[in-house]
Structure formats: C-alpha cells, structure tokens
Simulated assay, not measured.
Amino acid sequence: MPDVLRPLWTAPRPARAPARLRRDWVLVALLAVAAVLEVVLRPDVTWRPVAFVLALGVVLALLWRRTHPLGAVLAVSGALAAVNLAALFAGVGDLGLWTTACVVLLPYALCRWGSGREVVLGLAAVALASALGIAGDWTNVADAVLEACVVLVPAAVGAGVRFAAASRSRGRDEVRLREREQLARELHDTVAHHVSAIAVRAQAGRVVAASDPAAAVDALRVIEGEASRALTEMRLMVGALREDGAAALAPPRGVADIELLAHAVSGSPRVEVELTGDLDDLRPAVGAALYRLAQEAVTNAVRHARHASRVGVLVAGADDCVRLTVVDDGDLHGRSGAGYGLVGMSERVTLLGGTLDAGPGEERGWTVAAVLPRTGAVA
C-alpha cells in the first residue's frame, strides 16, 4: 500500500460514538409509517411487497449506523444492489420508495464514525449499489451525476464533521497538557524550595552537632517537617512532561497575589478583589491554582464581557475548602462556556480534587465559581 494512503487505511474509529438515541427511534418510527403509507397510497409502486421490505430494511439499518457503520452500509448496499439488478433484468425500472431516501444517512455515518478501512470498503459498496441504481433508472448524464452527488455529498459532510471534531479534541488535549505542565512546574518549584531548606538545615546541623547537640536536634526537627511537606506536595504531582530543561526556581503565585489583579487592568471594567475567611496555611499548589483561576477568569471577563463595568473577585476560606467566585456585569451576547480557557481551568481544578462551575449569572453577566480542598487532595 502506498505510504500516502496508509494513514487513511489504518485510521481508527473516533472515540465515544453514541449508540441508539431517542431521536433515532422517533426517526425510524416516522419513516416506517411513511413507508406503509407510501405502499398503500402510491399507485405507481412496482413489486409492492419487495419495495416495502426494502424500505423497511433501510429504515431499520439506521439504528446501527453509528455502532456498526460498515455492517449497516454493506447490508443496505447489498440489498439495493440485488433489487436494482433484478429490476434491471426485468426491465421494470426503479423499485425504491421515496422513504428509502434516508439511505443518504448511511454514507454520512460511515465517514463520521467508521475506521479507515471501513470507510474505504463501505464507500466502494455504496458506489457499486449507486451505479446499479443509476443504470436501472437511466435518463441522461446530468441526472446520473446528480444522483451520484446525492450519495457523495453526505459522505463528504460526514468526513468534514469528523475532522472538525478531531481538531477540537486535539485542541482540548493540548490545553489539558499545557495546564498539567504548568501545574507540574509549580509543584516542582514548591518541592524544590522545601528540599533547599532541608539541605541548608542539614549543613547547619552537621556544623553544630559536636558543640551544640540541642541545636542539631532542632535542625533535625525542621528537616523532618520540611520533608513531610515536600512529600505531601510530591503526592500531588501530575504525570505531565515538561518541554524545556531546568526549572526556574521562582516562588509560585499564591492567594495574596490575587489582589494584584485589581491593579493589572486599567480603565473599564474595574476589578475589585475581596479576600475573606481563613486563607493561611494553604498548600502552595492550592494557592497557585486559585491565583491562576482568578487570573484566567478576570482575563476572560475583560476580553469578552461586553459593556461590563465591574469584575468582582471573591476568595473565601472555610475550614476544609476555599471558594473562588468571579462575577462580571457584562452582556451575555456571544458568550459561551466552550472555550479552551475553561477547559484548562476545569482540568486544573479536577487535578486538585475540586469543582468548577461557569455560566450566566442570575440577572446578567458571567459567573465562575471554583471550590478547592485546602489540602489539594487529588480526586
């Protein structure tokens, strides 16, 4: 097989193909009723029992178009080819009911949900059945081309939808990887500071061990505490790969830095920050996550909140969790919760065992509410 065609042939099925939905059953029921009415009411139907069974088979095959796209296409294409071939030899023309027009959903589903080899084999079967149907009801070249387009256009649309969905999925995965990398960097820096403190205390304890054993014991106590905190932070480490080399050991941002967001935006809307409750002794990873979430939410509000005059940031500490709420008073027109920024925020919150809600406010504006456990335990 040529290398240029190998990726198409070996392409896997898209993930999370939906099974039969409620609307599928409704569609099949309506089409079955339409087939019955067509057989009863149309006077020009040839071979009525055969035409009805054929239409009913095409309709029922729609129930398996996502889970078994190749099987559905081969079964329908084989039946259509056999009936069209029999009609061609008998000289009776087209046997298909108008209801069988729903067969165009099968090429769409094949290109949307099938694997690469299923798409190739299925389209070949569709082309053969279409050729026999065109030959059995031949009029002119223009009509033949139009009938071929009726089959090929849904297949092209299915392929386009598939590539668009794959592109969105890759975009979301890249956002998650970047968020995991950023979180890993912050955790690395935090643990590095703990280890640095351990090294300094160990050196000091070794120096004074002979002359002042009590000071050496105090140094060991500090080392024990720093090591315990470092191990706790290490348990929060995510499996993310870093693209660059050595880490810059800069202190991570924390809850106190959220107040700086009020001065980071000049002009309208104004940003107001309020910190309440117990916000001491938070895990560094939790403090850094709260800052990143607030920063992203404020940035989104400034960029997308039309006619907003105020962005309120509230951080409230409780006994076992910390709540972050960012609210703006802008218009909702053109805003949605499907952006990659919210994907990254949700990924960060989930990694630390918290929850995130984002959506329209009660009266106007947009609200982002996050709840993180104080310990940052992984969910």
Rank of each mutant, 00 (worst) to 15 (best):
P2C: 15
L5T: 11
L8P: 10
T10P: 07
A11I: 08
P14V: 01
L21I: 11
A34W: 05
A35H: 00
A35P: 02
E38K: 11
E38G: 10
L41K: 05
R42F: 09
P49H: 00
V53A: 12
L60H: 04
A61F: 07
L62D: 07
H68L: 14
L70M: 02
A75R: 00
G78R: 04
A82D: 08
V92P: 04
L95G: 14
G96E: 14
T99G: 00
A101L: 13
L105Q: 14
A109V: 00
G116H: 03
S130Y: 10
L132M: 07
L132F: 06
G133T: 02
A135P: 00
G136A: 07
G136K: 05
D137L: 07
N140E: 12
D143Q: 09
V145I: 11
E147N: 10
V150R: 08
V153Y: 03
P154S: 03
G160I: 09
G160N: 10
V161L: 08
R162N: 04
F163P: 10
A165Q: 06
S167C: 12
G171C: 02
G171W: 04
R172L: 04
E174Q: 07
H188E: 06
D189C: 06
V191N: 04
A192E: 05
A192N: 06
H193M: 06
H194Y: 12
V200Y: 05
A202S: 11
A204M: 11
P213H: 03
V222N: 13
I223Y: 01
E224V: 06
E224F: 03
S228D: 13
G239Y: 11
L241H: 14
D244F: 13
P251V: 01
L261P: 14
V273T: 01
E274P: 07
L275Y: 00
D280W: 07
P284Q: 02
V286K: 01
G287N: 01
A288D: 12
A288L: 09
A289Q: 01
Y291C: 01
Y291M: 00
A294E: 03
A301Q: 10
V302W: 00
R303P: 02
A305G: 10
A305S: 15
V311M: 05
G312S: 15
G312A: 15
A316H: 13
A316Q: 15
V326I: 11
H333V: 15
S336T: 14
Y340C: 09
V343D: 09
G344Q: 05
L351T: 00
G353C: 04
G354N: 02
T355I: 07
A358T: 08
G361N: 08
L372R: 03
L372F: 02
